[in-house]
Amino acid sequence: MTASRTTAPVHVVVDIEGTTSATGFITEQLYPYSRKHFAQLLDTRGTEPDVARAAAAVRELIGEPEAGTERIVEALNGWLDRDEKVTPLKTLQGVIWAEGFASGELTSHFYPDAIPALRAWHAAGHTLYVFSSGSVSAQLAWFGHSAEGSLLPLFSGHFDTETAGPKKIASSYDAIAAAVGETDPARFVFLSDLVEELDAAKEAGWRTVGVRRPGEPYYAKGVAGHPETDSFARIDLSGAEPVVR
């Protein structure tokens, strides 16, 4: 779909890892926390709809319909070791992290420029959304427990690979636009550190800004021609095209 170049973006959609927040915090703090709690979650809350659905999805993906807790945990940890964005893994991580944030054991991380920019965009009338491979429940816990308090009032919606689709295909961005009720894709701007995601959003007609923060896993890969920034503070959304100052 071709975007109109005369329409200013209104909807700001952000990724999390490497974009608003450091990937290292997630892999070094949250991943071990979820690994520690997988078995307990499956054994004590296995009949809850989200947990039961995720466990069934794991059994289907590994081709073992009778797999018990030990085998499911083994599969989850294997995906975690390879940092694979597998939906049932992300669902179970979200349930575990939500408990950790609610108990105060976990507090989310944001780059210093992220929260002020999100607040400024919201105050300027932009509607904010999240599209992450992390589950919606994980996103709600993450943005609800920052060091500056809950950021959830800033956001109008949250999307993951289950509700929208894979992040590297254009149809997922079409699905988000449909869910939001926006017929003009040019009114969206997507912020991500991964060029394949940016390419998919651009194919769907969205505006894009590549976020390249030193030390992040995809920094050296670049953003292949997308407007690029190392800070949200440099992004100007007031015109027909996003501008990086």
Rank of each mutant, 00 (worst) to 15 (best):
I176S: 02
G18N: 04
I176A: 09
I26R: 13
R82S: 11
L41E: 01
R82D: 13
V86Q: 06
T69Q: 00
H126I: 09
F131W: 07
L80N: 15
L151K: 03
I96R: 01
E28V: 09
L30A: 05
W206D: 08
S133L: 10
R187K: 13
T23S: 09
T107S: 10
Q139G: 08
Y31A: 12
A56V: 00
S21C: 13
E28T: 14
G144C: 04
P49W: 07
K168I: 12
T87V: 14
A138D: 07
S192W: 05
E203R: 14
S132L: 04
A170G: 10
L42G: 01
A67R: 06
T44I: 10
S156V: 03
A147C: 06
A138K: 04
S132P: 01
T19I: 05
F159H: 04
R53M: 12
I235L: 08
R234V: 08
E70P: 12
L118C: 03
A67N: 08
S21H: 08
F143D: 00
G205Q: 10
E228V: 14
P185M: 01
A56E: 12
L42K: 00
R207I: 00
E74Y: 10
F101W: 06
L118T: 05
R212E: 14
G18T: 07
G181S: 03
S231M: 04
L118E: 05
Y129R: 05
V95L: 10
E99Q: 13
P217H: 03
T47Y: 05
A123H: 08
E74V: 12
D193T: 09
E182T: 13
F38R: 03
S4I: 08
V73R: 00
L76D: 05
H122F: 09
E148C: 02
T161L: 09
W121G: 07
S34E: 11
Y173P: 06
L237H: 03
K168P: 04
T229H: 07
E70G: 11
L106V: 03
F38E: 05
R207W: 07
G239D: 15
P32Q: 01
D160E: 08
V14L: 13
V243I: 14
G46K: 00
A114T: 15
L140V: 15
A224P: 07
S156C: 02
T44Q: 13
S108Y: 01
H126N: 04
D43W: 15
I115H: 07
G205I: 11
E84C: 11
A123S: 08
L30R: 04
A170K: 12
P217T: 06
E28A: 15
I72V: 13
A220N: 11
V195Q: 14
W121E: 02
Y218G: 11
A141I: 03
K167L: 06
F188N: 09
A164P: 11
E70W: 02
Q93Y: 02
T127Q: 13
Y111K: 11
L42V: 00
V180D: 01
R45T: 11
W142D: 02
P32C: 03
A56N: 00
L191E: 04
Y219P: 14
G68V: 03
P9Y: 05
V195Y: 14
R207H: 12
E162K: 11
G215V: 06
H109M: 06
R234C: 11
A67V: 00
E241V: 11
W97R: 02
G205P: 02
G24K: 10
S192H: 02
F143L: 13
A124H: 09
